[in-house]
Design a protein around this nucleic acid. Structure first.
Length: 565
DNA sequence: CAGATAACTTAGCATAAGGAAA
DNA sequence: TTTCCTTATGCTAAGTTATCTG
């Protein structure tokens, strides 16, 4: 039972808190100059750099063994920004990146990180305590009478920007955040955080209609960054709950909406047809909305509304299927979406129409954008937007798959495999991929070795059982009979262990390039999982680790085994 | 209504931590 | 105890959406 203090009674619309107190961001340590014996070389000769130029040089030096330092865009962006940090004398000398030798600096940092790993237990313990102290001091805030964990309480350190995929800004200098860049948000009557000695905040404001504690503008894309609460906080938890409640409301009207967009496929208005086909993709394939992006500012990625003609191919017939659309484009984080889908005939016909007389680089839905689409969705249901379809389809798929795959007779290990498979179906739907882990082959091999060894043991146990049975046949004495029972038990245990290992191997293989975490954390209503755990006697800890249990505390409190999404 | 912006969620990867094996 | 491997956590980029502005 929760006590409700006066501070957290229902707030006015848009008001997120009544009291907020915190220490402000923790600023990452200032740059420490290199020791004198670690040198930078230009054109083969040692060159002592100014402090600012040296700091930026170390950013590059640290990345030397990454592939992206070999890319021309990265090098050019870096060199441009680096030169801005140089003294005019340095600018005159250092004109060619190819003549720069950072290897000694690189080695210095490699050695340093080795040395850190090799620290004694006591020294590591001491470092841990220092980190814990910072966490304790800066990592929490008071919000409406509750002590809440902050998500990211440290400023981001300076360095070289690494975008994902083919990013035009890769290698640019990401500048150090100073207190003078930071806006503090807290309550008026709280203890206002002190800026570091000798510094001032950019601004202190008291805005209770937003949830962030501090913000600054980042210099690469000129966008805002925020310090916000951890997912375990009440504020975030309630928002998460709301999100799933909106998705559940979609469940009630989705049939109507589907009927509507099917009808709109035949509309006289091109705009409506495009909207209806896009919505079909969003619903059926769980595509993202797809905002327009400024060219040259980001990697070239698309979502549904921003698809271009070049991203799809139409096949009237393919592999025995009709009306096949072949999708091939880069989505969020430059993750490739590749899929061949048989679509309903009117969709196919419409796509042919949308593509007529267009160049490959033209927009497929030239009369549509996310704001038109979302305005339409908002009219269909309060709170509905494109992303709700992803949440809805992900959660409903989990529920259906769990129903279809779980066998109550199975062992816990078997049930977990079913759960992972249901989770995997969702991850595939949402196209949540990962690169094959570097250690994948090796760890698969290790597992195979274990399986082989277990098989051997099973065989031996079978032979021993046979022997024991033969002996009992001969002697018919009680001792021999007991021995048979013993061997049977042993064999059974070993067979179970073998089965478990096989299940593990299967799960691992199927999961090679699929990331389950994102859907688990962001798309699957946790109450579905909790209900399933309760129904089939699977401990919740087998599915959710500590952090996840904290994030989903609201659901663990709430859901019983009868919960239906 | 287009375009910009603020606020917030979602995303994969790198690294740290922790637990098992040697 | 040390080493090895897996899992958890931290990090911050990259999306979505509502709202504001002219």
């Amino acid at each position: 039972a929760h006590r409700t203090s006066s501070q957290e009674e229902k707030k006015e619309d848009g008001v997120k808190w009544t009291q907020l107190e915190h220490r402000g961001p923790y600023f990452v340590p200032l740059y420490e100059p290199l020791p004198d014996d670690v040198q930078f070389y230009y054109d083969g000769k040692p060159l002592k750099l100014s402090l600012a130029a040296e700091e930026v040089a170390t950013f590059y030096a640290k990345m030397l063994d990454h592939e992206y330092t070999t890319k021309e865009i990265f090098q050019n962006n870096f060199f441009n920004d680096w030169r801005k940090e140089m003294t005019s004398k340095e600018q005159k000398i250092i004109t060619d990146l190819d003549k720069c030798d950072f290897r000694e600096i690189h080695k210095y940092f490699v050695d340093k990180s080795e040395a850190r790993k090799a620290l004694s237990k006591e020294e590591k313990q001491k470092l841990k305590e220092e980190a814990d102290k910072i966490q304790e001091e800066y990592g929490y805030c008071m919000l409406d009478g509750h002590r809440e964990k902050i998500g990211n309480f440290k400023t981001e350190p300076p360095g070289l920007f690494r975008g994902r995929g083919d990013h035009p800004k890769m290698g640019m200098l990401k500048k150090r955040i100073m207190p003078e860049d930071v806006i503090i948000n807290c309550s008026k009557d709280s203890k206002i955080p002190e800026p570091p000695e000798g510094h001032k905040w950019k601004e202190v404001r008291f805005d209770n209609t937003v949830t962030w504690l501090a913000s600054w503008t980042e210099n690469i894309q000129n966008t805002l960054k925020y310090i916000m609460l951890n997912p375990s906080s009440k504020l975030k938890g309630e928002k998460d709950w709301q999100k799933y409640e909106v998705a559940r409301r979609l469940k009630d009207v989705v049939h109507k909406i589907r009927a509507q967009y099917r009808a709109d496929w035949m509309s006289k208005e091109m705009k409506k047809r495009q909207r209806a086909v896009a919505l079909y993709f969003i619903d059926k394939l769980a595509l993202r909305a797809g905002n327009e992006k400024e060219e040259g500012e980001t990697a070239d990625t698309v979502g549904c509304c921003s698809l271009r003609v070049e991203h799809i191919k139409l096949h009237p017939k393919l592999d025995g299927q009709e009306h096949v659309v072949e999708f091939d484009f880069l989505g969020k984080d430059s993750i490739r979406y590749y899929n061949k889908v048989s679509v309903e005939k009117p969709v196919f016909k419409n796509l042919q129409l949308f593509m007529k007389n267009k160049d490959p680089a033209d927009d497929l839905f030239d009369r549509l954008n996310t704001s038109i689409l979302n305005r339409h969705l908002q009219n269909l249901m309060d709170g509905l937007s494109a992303k709700v379809f992803r949440t809805y389809n992900a959660s409903i798929t989990l529920q259906e798959q769990l129903k279809a795959l779980t066998n109550s007779e199975d062992s816990v290990a078997g049930k977990l495999l079913s759960y992972n498979r249901a989770n995997r179906a969702v991850a595939i739907l949402c196209n949540h991929q990962r690169s094959t882990p570097k250690t994948f082959e090796k760890s698969m091999q290790n597992l195979q070795t274990k399986i082989d060894a277990k098989k051997q043991q099973v065989e031996e146990a079978q032979q021993e059982l046979k022997k024991a049975e033969d002996e009992f046949e001969d002697t018919k004495d009680a001792k021999a009979e007991a021995n048979v029972e013993k061997k049977k038990k042993l064999l059974k245990r070993l067979e179970e262990q073998l089965a478990k290992l096989n299940v593990q191997a299967m799960d691992k293989e199927e999961n090679k390039q699929i990331a389950l975490g994102t859907s688990k954390l962001n798309y699957l209503d946790p109450r579905i999982t909790i209900a399933w755990c309760k129904k089939f006697g699977v401990p919740i800890e087998k599915i959710y680790n500590k952090t996840q249990r904290e994030k989903f505390a609201w659901a663990i409190d709430m859901a019983d085994e009868d919960f239906e999404f």
